[in-house]
Simulated assay, not measured.
Amino acid sequence: MSPKTRAYLEKLYQLLQKMPEDERLDAIREIESHIAEGVANGQSEDAILARLGDPRMLAKAYRSEYMMEKGRGRSFKDVMIMAGFYCSTGLLSIMVIPVLATIAYGFGFCAVLVFLAGFIRTLGIGATWIQMSLGPGMEVPTEWSMVFSTIVGGIIGGIAYVSWRGLRLYMSFLSASYKKVLPGSRAM
């Protein structure tokens, strides 16, 4: 293995520092194997490295693949880690991901609060502080609080769900874009 290839692999290893050690080593072994296979087929190491491209982009692709695999459970923490990673990948992502995430989680939380407020107001558990109105001077009667809060909460929850789906689709799109950079996903 040439010094240039060794330097490339060391740079890639450094750029993968946020991944677990076993995942980092798997990525390095995969690239080493790819290079060895190319050399065995008569290609030069320089040509193979040129096709692999910038190690930064390759590292982002591996980290993206790891994030998508790790985030299969899609816990709140996993989604926030993925959103943070993808926000660091481009200018459009810096704007799109935080907006969609804020709408999804903010509206989702508000939908639950609206439903609970309607429930509490309907039961009349000292809930004189909960006001529901259709406009100025058009107060919702207490007995209709649950129906009103279910409709409003459903609309707000629908907006949250659409934003959540949009966020997941956007991050899946980014992941698929990065996956194309990986050696096994394209013809060499």
Rank of each mutant, 00 (worst) to 15 (best):
Y105Q: 10
C87P: 03
G38D: 08
M82S: 11
G108S: 02
A83T: 05
G157Y: 01
P98I: 03
M146G: 05
G166V: 03
A127C: 04
S133G: 09
L123Q: 08
F115H: 07
G108Y: 00
A176W: 00
M67R: 08
V96L: 11
I103S: 06
E45Y: 01
K179W: 02
M171C: 03
L16S: 06
A83F: 01
M138K: 11
E30A: 15
L113H: 02
V162C: 07
L52A: 05
K77L: 15
A104N: 04
D78S: 12
M146Q: 03
R186D: 10
Q43G: 09
K18D: 13
I125Q: 06
F173T: 14
M19L: 14
F107S: 15
V39A: 09
Y178Q: 09
V39I: 13
Y161F: 15
V140M: 02
F76E: 13
F76Q: 10
T89A: 08
L167M: 09
S172Y: 06
T5E: 07
Q14M: 14
T150M: 13
R6W: 06
L174G: 09
A176H: 04
G158A: 06
E139F: 06
F173A: 15
P141A: 10
I35T: 04
W129E: 05
S44E: 08
M57K: 14
G84R: 09
P3H: 12
F109A: 15
I159W: 01
I97A: 05
F107D: 12
R165Q: 14
L174F: 00
V39S: 06
P183H: 09
R72Y: 08
V79I: 12
S185A: 13
G42P: 00
D78R: 03
R63Y: 07
L92F: 08
L15E: 11
I159R: 04
S75K: 00
R56E: 14
E30I: 08
W129H: 10
Y13I: 05
P98Q: 02
A59V: 02
G73M: 11
M1A: 11
K70G: 03
D22L: 12
I94G: 12
R6Y: 05
P98T: 01
S88D: 10
M19Q: 08
A104Q: 04
S185N: 15
K179T: 13
T102H: 07
R168M: 15
M132D: 01
V96D: 03
L49D: 03
A127D: 03
V147T: 07
R72W: 09
K11H: 13
V152P: 04
I48F: 01
P98V: 03
S175I: 03
R6H: 11
A61T: 04
V99F: 11
G53M: 05
T5V: 13
Y86S: 04
Y161L: 15
E37A: 14
Q14R: 15
A127H: 01
G157M: 04
L58K: 03
E45R: 05
K18S: 14
M67N: 08
K60G: 10
G38F: 00
V79N: 07
V114P: 00
G135L: 01
G124R: 02
D26W: 00
G73S: 11
Q14L: 15
A101L: 15
I48E: 04
K70F: 10
E23I: 11
G135N: 00
S149R: 02
L12Y: 02
A101P: 05
A36R: 14
I94E: 05
G73C: 08
R168C: 12
L9V: 02
S185C: 13
